[in-house]
Amino acid sequence: MSVTPCGFLRTPEKGLARLHWADTGWAVDGRPPDVAALRPLRGLEIEWPAAEVPVDGLLRLAAAGVPLTAERAEPWVPAGLAALVTDRAWLDHAPDGTARSLADLRREEHSVRLRRLAHPALTPKVSIVMSTKRPGFVGAALAQMERQLGVEAEVLLGLHGVAFEEVRAAVEGCSLSVTWVEAAESTPFGEVLNQAAALAGGDYVAKWDDDDWYGPRHLSDLVMALSYAGADVVGTTAEFFYLEPLKATIRRTTFASGAGYPSEVWADHVAGGTILVSRSNFQEIGGFPGLSRAVDLEFLKAAQKAGARTYRTHGLGYVLRRGLSDQHTWQLPLAHFVKVAANQWRGFRPSLLMDAA
């Protein structure tokens, strides 16, 4: 298994430590880097040696999600790495213990950018499966799919009680390959997804919700996590929510019980709108359960029973929309999301990774 960010801590307990060259390799305060021991640190401040040295050790730390920073970079440092480690904007935000603090979020964004640099780039074909009862949401959803970077995407659209004529303009205006099926409104949600997924030709099947927001590297980050973790199923945290009636964005890092809700862990729960699985594993699991509700939860249970391992990666490229509870298959009152919020901001305030490539 490759070096991974598994075990990344959102909130560091200590400050920066010194990363320097010690004759035979990179060292942290005189000792070889131990990723597990580095997790509580805010990051590592690089001190460059005078002569050129290998950067493999730095890339391993980047692959592990350890935040790296430097005031400058030597000319021999690869351009991509140099640009990232000298971008110190994330350090401008000091933790202040308030619900509006951005310190932990900016640090994690920096970590994700380093992971992307360090892990080999793949360009797989991904079959995006989306069921909708809301024709008015289809255009925006397809536009977000078109923005996906690092993958070759095809769209499999399940029209759930919706006639194709209602979405024709959006579909024909999309640059991606879009295949659709029409299902009666009485058809269970999971069955509509399966009818669409049966047409998949990609290496991976990815579930997509019509009313949520996805960053441009959402799919490529999922494929990256599946690869470095060696997982069978991958998804993100359900971490960012936009509460439309309150016009507020919240970020949760715990469950309602108070238990931690970390990313970069093996888990039995991921955000349903972010499930990604290889097409062969999807078929072995038996597809989505033909239910009207709890389709994601039951799919993950079926995956576990089939012996599949599920990994939960970061959720910075995903925002769930929440209106009144009766508008969603996952029915919880808005007060629940306010209660579990570790951070809360006015307006639509997603992670910077929602826009940055």
Score class of each variant (00 low, 15 high):
S278Y: 00
V155M: 02
L297T: 00
L352Q: 15
V295S: 00
K301R: 07
A197W: 04
I250R: 01
G315P: 13
L81E: 01
D87W: 10
Y214N: 04
S292E: 15
N281Q: 04
V277Q: 14
P40L: 03
L291M: 11
E152M: 09
L332W: 15
Q344V: 08
A248P: 10
W213V: 02
A153V: 04
H20V: 06
A341L: 04
S131R: 10
S227H: 14
T132R: 07
D221S: 15
I46C: 10
V155A: 03
P5T: 09
F337H: 02
L102A: 13
M130S: 10
L91R: 12
Q195W: 06
A238C: 08
R321H: 05
K133F: 04
V55R: 04
V129W: 05
L68E: 02
R349G: 01
E13H: 11
S177A: 15
Q283P: 00
F164A: 10
P333N: 10
V53R: 02
A259W: 01
L334Y: 00
Q304H: 15
W76N: 08
L176E: 14
N281S: 07
V171H: 14
E298P: 02
T237W: 04
V162N: 00
L193G: 13
A294S: 10
L122D: 15
A271V: 13
A306I: 05
H218G: 14
D211M: 06
A183E: 15
A197P: 12
Q195D: 13
D355L: 09
P12Q: 08
R42M: 08
Q344T: 07
E165Y: 07
A225Q: 00
S186F: 06
Q344H: 03
I275V: 14
R107Y: 12
E172Q: 12
T187S: 10
D203L: 11
G7P: 00
D104T: 13
M130A: 13
T98N: 01
S127K: 05
L84E: 07
T4R: 07
Y318E: 01
A225K: 00
L117N: 14
T86D: 03
W180I: 08
R322M: 11
T179D: 13
V265I: 08
L122Y: 11
R322F: 04
D355A: 11
A238T: 08
L334D: 02
L58M: 14
I250T: 09
R113F: 01
E108Y: 06
A197S: 13
H269W: 11
E172K: 06
G215Q: 03
E109M: 05
L61M: 05
M130C: 14
P12N: 06
G136L: 02
H328T: 10
G15R: 09
T132C: 11
E52Q: 15
V28D: 07
R217G: 12
E108W: 06
A82W: 07
S257G: 12
